[in-house]
Design a protein around this nucleic acid. Structure first.
Length: 501
RNA sequence: GGUCCUGUGGCCGAGUGGCUAGGCAGAGCUCUGCAAAAGCUCGUACAGCGGUUCGAAUCCGCUCGGGACCUCCA
């Protein structure tokens, strides 16, 4: 079964065929490094990390480009005298690039916590001013942009006359162009008078004197508009038309719509074959965002230091929580929901570790029904992921198998009642999907080399005490360990295992 | 105001017209020196009202509720 992807541009699932056979070019809108990343930001990066991993699993050579926006966006075209990055830099008395460095480092740290693979190229906006200026000059030369007082605007009306502006975001172009229609959006902006039409967007903005981040351009000193950076960098590294462009749904308009317009004019081709957009993370039914004042930063999530959190959550718990819902659904955050994910992941991971240790010496009488059921579940892993990356269904199948695996271990079902080929396939599929595609890792950090012999000694002592029916001693060991967060489990075969709570 | 999405059991969440999603929490049982873990079993669902259909959570219409975008935004 071929990979199918829901394309936001056509609003339907399409069979994935890459522009260049065997290769995939993927661009994902990266962070604006003017502040700390929050839980909402984690979703696209984890979602597209899984997309990246799955494409590689499908044997594609993938060039994954994810930008760092370090030039700053505008609060509103022209409304703020300064862009976000430089404004905050002054408040915090930091050099703009110092601030950029700080949050870039923090972002990279968070990505590492989530076990996200680094992109192939991580270009910065400030490193590509030349390319952006070149692209703007090209758009002007082709007659789709105009300069006013040192700023350059894209002529949406002209573009819309011959192109489908608004298709991606489902916007009605006449409404966008007719500013009298926008009664709720009365924009009294300085840039507004310069524009020929309210729908036009900035490609380049003249920098007022106090603006720190500024570059020389054919139109005077200024800084690039927000949308041009992605067009310039995507074109440079992925070509005129590339396979996948990803990002959050909130970027559909105006960002991605504008990107399509800019690139289409410059390259005479639609820039992207498949647009993929992840849905938002909500908190009490509201989108998580600065304007709603309901942000949980990643550092707060990992430390538990937030009024909405009862405890710290491991990055893998968060990753699992995100993978348990489909990327195009909204995902509602709560402490309880995360707690449930934490327990679920623990259970699944324990079953996975048990699975990897199972062996079959000699096949016994084969339980055909069970053997077949297991094979079906395993086969569906790939099918579900092929169907627009349906990770929740794969996870559900894994949970179907967890009781079977546990029963093998406890001897409730003999392991050799399934074919050894089936067991081998289970071990391989679980490893591939859980570790390589979902990018999950063990969370049991206390299980290190020094700890093992110590625990073995303690468990040996406890076993001896139990043999002598000295339950006071055996319970003392168990309870003391329990108190410091180590759980002892007596198993059916008389062995004892342990793990962190 | 415009465009679009959505409403599933205590909670989170899959659901392609007909067959138990799954997880967490809860109840009972088995195993266990006791516990934990594990296994087995159980319960309450498809916002409301109409329509299409042999049959609808799934398609259509209306009503009510929630949300997103239209402005920086993952």
């Amino acid at each position: 079964m071929p990979l199918q992807i829901y394309n936001s541009y056509t609003r339907q699932k399409e069979i994935f065929e890459s522009v260049t056979p065997g290769h995939v070019g993927m661009y994902v809108c990266g962070p604006t490094v003017s502040g700390e990343s929050h839980l909402g930001h984690a979703r696209p990066y984890i979602t597209f990390d899984v997309v990246y991993r799955f494409l590689q699993h499908k044997k594609y050579k993938v060039r994954y480009v994810r930008n760092i926006t370090d030039a700053g966006h505008f609060e509103e075209e022209g409304r703020e005298a300064e862009d976000k990055v430089s404004k905050k830099a002054q408040l915090e008395k930091l050099e703009p690039m110092e601030l950029v460095q700080k949050y870039t480092n923090l972002f990279h740290w968070a990505m590492k916590q989530f076990n996200c693979i680094e992109p192939s190229i991580e270009p910065t906006a400030t490193g590509h001013i030349v390319e952006q200026i070149g692209m703007i000059e090209d758009i002007i030369a082709k007659g789709y942009a105009y300069e006013v007082n040192g700023s350059v605007y894209f002529d949406v009306k002209k573009y819309a006359a011959s192109h489908d502006y608004g298709k991606l975001s489902g916007r009605v172009i006449d409404e966008l162009l007719d500013s009298s229609n926008r009664d709720s959006v009365t924009r009294e902006l300085d840039g507004q008078n310069e524009k020929r039409d309210a729908a036009d967007f900035a490609l380049w903005k003249a920098a007022p004197p106090e603006h720190i981040m500024r570059w020389k351009s054919p139109w005077g000193e200024g800084f690039p508009g927000w949308h041009i950076e992605c067009s310039a960098m995507a074109t440079k590294y992925l070509g005129a038309t590339f396979d996948i462009h990803g990002g959050g749904m909130d970027l559909l308009f105006p960002h991605h719509e504008s990107e399509i317009a800019q690139s289409t004019i410059c390259n005479h081709a639609a820039p992207v074959k498949y647009w993929i957009h992840n849905n938002m993370i909500t908190i009490n039914g509201r989108k998580m965002g600065k304007s709603y004042n309901n942000v949980i930063k990643l550092t707060e999530l990992f430390s538990g230091d937030h009024p909405l959190l009862q405890q710290a959550f491991h990055p893998m718990t968060v990753r699992f929580f995100i993978l348990q819902s489909h990327y195009r659904s909204t995902l509602d955050f709560s402490n309880d929901a995360l707690l449930a994910s934490e327990k679920a992941l623990k259970r699944l991971w324990e079953a996975y570790e048990i699975l990897q240790k199972l062996t079959i010496e000699n096949e016994g009488e084969i339980n055909q029904e069970l053997d077949e059921k297991l094979n079906n579940w395993l086969q569906e892993f790939e099918m579900f992921m092929d169907d627009d990356f349906s990770s929740p269904k794969v996870i559900a199948n894994m949970f179907e198998m967890a009781p079977v695996i546990n029963s093998f271990k406890d001897g409730i079902i003999p392991v050799n009642s399934i074919r050894s080929a089936t067991l081998a396939l289970m071990q391989e599929r679980f490893k591939t999907f859980l570790e390589e595609i979902f990018g999950l890792t063990a969370t049991d950090s206390g299980n290190n080399e020094k700890m093992k012999p110590v625990m073995e000694l303690l468990l040996e002592l406890r076993k001896e005490a139990k043999a002598k029916k000295d339950f006071a001693t055996s319970d003392r060991i168990r309870n003391q360990l329990n108190a410091i967060g180590i759980i002892i489990k007596d198993e059916k075969d008389g062995n004892t295992s342990w793990g962190l709570a």
